[in-house]
């Protein structure tokens, strides 16, 4: 465990909390892509199947449970509790365009051809593209609430910190995981355009709106 990894995990946790706080306080999930949140719930479910079979540390187990809970509570808020405020007309990204290639790739490129390993690989590939419905929704409506942009910023920061974590682990432990690294780089690239808008607009007190 290194500083990049712990800050990355905390940033991830903060992102998920911010999203829940936004929904809870405003009693609205306007501007949030339910499809992205379903994908994240699917990511955690397929990745953390080893929760009971493979103990790593108390930290690891607790974080997995918290991540799963946050993901499912968020989906519940969007599709049940505050369903009336859900902006379904703008959440139109076609999930099959992500799921079909991701399922195919997880069968083709994995570490071992076992059910849990293929599902783990699926979760890694899916996470790298899970935010696309959300980014698509923002580009469609042309704007995002400031708290939603903070959510996206911390989600992107988590990815960037994980890249630093992998460089660190490669240098100190000679550990590397090609599947995670390649997917992590792809995922981080998706946030670059957003990071630019966040720094040039949101941090200067302006609302994120696209021309």
């Amino acid at each position: 465990m290194n500083v990049f990894r712990i800050l990355g995990d905390l940033s991830h946790l903060l992102a998920m909390f911010l999203l829940l706080v936004k929904i809870w306080r405003s009693k609205s999930c306007a501007g949030i892509s339910g499809k992205s949140q379903i994908l994240f719930a699917l990511v955690f479910t397929t990745r953390y199947l080893d929760l009971f079979s493979n103990f790593i540390s108390i930290y690891n187990t607790v974080m997995k449970v918290v991540f799963l809970l946050c993901a499912y509570v968020t989906v519940y808020m969007i599709y049940w509790k505050f369903r009336k405020t859900f902006d379904i007309e703008n959440d139109t990204f076609r999930l099959e365009f992500l799921l079909v290639p991701v399922i195919g790739l997880s069968f083709l490129v994995n570490y071992s051809y076992t059910p849990t390993e293929v599902l783990w690989t699926f979760s890694i590939y899916l996470e790298s593209v899970a935010i696309l419905p959300q980014l698509f929704m923002i580009s469609k409506t042309g704007e995002a609430e400031t708290i939603t942009t903070h959510y996206l910023f911390f989600l992107g920061l988590y990815r960037a910190l994980y890249l630093a974590n992998w460089i660190w682990r490669y240098q100190t432990e000679n550990f590397y995981d090609q599947i995670s690294v390649v997917s992590g780089v792809v995922q981080t690239i998706f946030y670059c355009d957003f990071f630019y808008l966040y720094v040039t607009k949101v941090l200067k007190g302006k609302k994120l709106s696209l021309p």
Partner: peptide, 10 residues
């Protein structure tokens, strides 16, 4: 052969 890759990250 059963092979388990260690996934110790979140």
């Amino acid at each position: 052969r059963e092979f388990t890759y260690v996934h110790d990250e979140l």
